[in-house]
Structure formats: structure tokens, C-alpha cells
Simulated assay, not measured.
Amino acid sequence: MSAPLPAFPPVSGWLIRVSEVFGELVEEVIQRTGATASTPLGSEYHLLKGTDFQAIRASDAAQFIRWNLPVHHSWPCNPQKTEGFIEKAAQAMFRKFGHLPLQAILVGQLDPSSPNKYYKTLASNLRGRTLQLFPNVGKIEVEEQDPAALTLFCLVGPEGLFCGVQSLRDSNGFHPGGTRYISQNAPGTISRAGAKIAEALHYLRLHRPLPMTGSHWLELGASPGGMTSELLKRGYRVTAVDRAPLDARLDKTSGLTFLRADVATFQPPQGENYDAFLSDLNGSALESIGYIIRLSSHLRKGGLVVFTLKTSDASSVEAASELHQAVTTRAKAVGLSLFATTHLTYNRQEFTLFLEKTKV
């Protein structure tokens, strides 16, 4: 007879994150989750009442929700003015969560973009003290976490402390708040798109292993080469297609084949197959997925598609959701099945879709 599951503290609400780029649509997003009330927290977070995980995930606004967390414990207060905040907060977390089989404890800021460093330091110190109280939880590297195992997430800010326990996959990210900032200030950086694919590959690990080193990518609309450069750095081979040239710094780079051609008419050599497709094309999303569909016979079974869904023409949650549905339905008809959608730090009014070729 199996042991009973440990009891969780009751859920008092749901914390969701919606990117500031969708600020005009936040009210519509929240309404579609079925929430009966909401409170803004930080710059992108909202505490929802009267809804649950299933309603949030089933909502046609789910793609706008970058990260979510059940709130199992909260302490509304001003940490800067609360004497002994770190010790009191850590002790309370141990009392409520010390019996759970946690793989990690991660603490972040409600407003990570704030120039005020106080809460970044507070988050670090709170995590350190909390880990001292949990004898079976160590300082695991974020990327080494099991996406299906339980993590205790905590967010702090001027509004207080909010925390809960959930798997990384259900929360939609490894870090508190989901995604992490990837700097594009390193010498030799070609464009901000490099950070976009780096973050996409980091996120992908929530759902499946990364393509093996040496895998062959077909990148549509590659110029100037920010994504191309990032893939090459990771040991992948890349066939990059664009009418415009790549940055001169990529000339003669090992593993790169550049084809100066129109994506709309490009046809791979007979017998050429790829392990993954990448599309960050501007313009119509339906047109862009059409190119992927036309070339899908050259994608190996089990192959990956990373596709940027541009929604700049969609003025509402409903319109964006209908576009998402249309794109994924057309892809599924040729054996390209959607397994994840997210909004990345470097995404604007767009989403990154992950699809897998499930049949030949």
C-alpha cells in the first residue's frame, strides 16, 4: 500500500505573470481565466482570486500567462519596515512546507526590472536562510532541476511575500517568474535574437531534451545571424536561408551553410533532411507556418520546430488565440504537433511555439 501524499497548505489565490508588452490586454486575460478578483503586484504580476490551475490552463488566454503559481502562503507587509523579516519569513516557510519533498527553494523579486537592489539582496539572503532550515534541500543548480518535481518558489517585493509549491513544468519556467534575463552585451554579439533562441532552448528543457550536439538546423529568415551565431556556438550545424546577407563575422564559420534565397521558394537539395527547424520570420504568421509546412517532409521524425508566432496584427486576446489555433491546426495536419507555447523575455507581441514531428 503506497504512502499517502503529504498535505499541502490551502491555496489562497493564483499568482500569474503577464508581460508588460501586453499591458493593454491584461484585463481581458484575467477575465478569461474566470477570476473573480485580482490585485496587481510588482510590474507584471497579478494575484487572482476565484480561479484555479485548470481554469487558467484551459483559458484561451493561457498563452499570455508567462508563469503561474498557487499561493500557499503569503505575508502582505513592507519588508523594509518589518523587523526581523528574513528570520520570520524563513521560519514560517519551514512550518508550512518543511514536510514536503522539495527538490529546491528559489526566491526572486516581484519586480526584477527595478533599479532598487534592496529586493534582489533580500531575495538572496532569504533563500540562504531558508535553505539552512530545510535539512533535505540543497543548493541545486536551476538547470539541473527535474521539471516534474516540486520546487518551492517565493517572490518578494514592497507588497510583501508570496510563495507556493509546484512543478517547474506546471509553473512554466525554471526560475521564480519563469524566464531569466540573458545579456546581449557580450563582445561579438550580432543581434538580440541570439538571446531569444538561447532562452527558448533553456525553456525547451522543461519538456524534452535539447537536440544533440551536431544536430542539423534549418533556419528560415536568418539575417543578420543572431540566432545562427547562438546555434553555432552550441555545436549545431546550421543551414541559414535569407534574401539578405548574414553578418560578415559569420563568414567561413565552421558548421554554417548560408543560402542567399527567398524562403518562399527555397527548396532543400533532394534527400537533405534536418533535425530541427527555426523560424523567426516577420510578416504573416499563417504565411510563415506555410513555409514550415511546405518543407516539413525534410524534417526527421521526432524533429523539433521552434516557431515565432507574430501577433502584431491581433488587437485582442481573442484574435491572438484564434491565430494561434489556426497556426497549430494547420501544422498538426502535416504531423507537426504543438507541445509548448511561451512568451520569452526578448519576445515582443509574439509567442514562441515548440512543435514536434510526430509522423512521416
Rank of each mutant, 00 (worst) to 15 (best):
K88H: 11
A285C: 04
Q109C: 15
L110I: 05
W14K: 04
G157R: 07
R32K: 15
F258G: 02
S167Y: 03
K332T: 01
D52Y: 02
F354S: 02
R234K: 14
F153R: 02
S113P: 00
L295G: 01
L204K: 05
L299F: 05
R300C: 08
G271C: 05
E87H: 11
S337L: 10
R32L: 14
T189S: 14
T329H: 12
C163T: 09
P268T: 10
P158T: 08
Q54L: 12
N347S: 14
R330K: 15
P211S: 10
A186K: 14
G50N: 06
R66P: 00
S2Q: 09
L309H: 04
N282M: 10
R243C: 12
E20I: 06
P10L: 07
Y181S: 07
A3L: 15
P115V: 02
N185C: 05
E27A: 14
P187L: 10
I16P: 02
P115S: 09
V238P: 02
I140L: 13
I30W: 02
T228Y: 09
P147R: 04
Q132N: 14
E83Y: 08
G283P: 09
L161T: 06
R192D: 02
T36F: 01
V334A: 10
Q267L: 11
N172L: 12
A37R: 13
A62F: 13
V26L: 06
G128P: 03
H99N: 13
L259I: 14
K357C: 07
W67Q: 09
W217A: 00
H207C: 03
E199T: 05
L110Q: 13
A37W: 03
A35I: 03
G283D: 10
A222L: 04
S297T: 11
L155C: 04
Q184M: 03
D251W: 01
G23F: 07
L155E: 05
R237A: 06
G283L: 08
Q91L: 14
A314I: 00
L161Q: 10
F53R: 13
K120T: 12
K49C: 01
Q91S: 14
I289N: 08
N136I: 00
H343V: 11
S59N: 08
L338K: 12
T345L: 04
K310M: 04
Q91A: 15
T213C: 03
I293L: 09
P112F: 09
E230G: 01
A333T: 10
A248N: 04
S223C: 11
E141P: 10
P101C: 00
R300D: 07
V11N: 00
I86R: 13
G178K: 01
H324E: 11
G178D: 11
T265S: 15
W75Y: 12
Q325W: 01
L281V: 08
A3K: 07
Q80L: 09
Q109L: 09
E287W: 02
L256Y: 08
S38A: 15
R192A: 07
S191E: 01
A240W: 06
P115I: 01
H298D: 00
F8G: 02
L201H: 03
L338F: 00
F134M: 13
L344M: 15
I105S: 04
S38Y: 08
G34C: 05
E44N: 04
L231Y: 10
K233P: 00
I105G: 03
S43V: 02
V142K: 13
Q91T: 15
Q103F: 03
E318M: 07
R249S: 15
A198E: 14
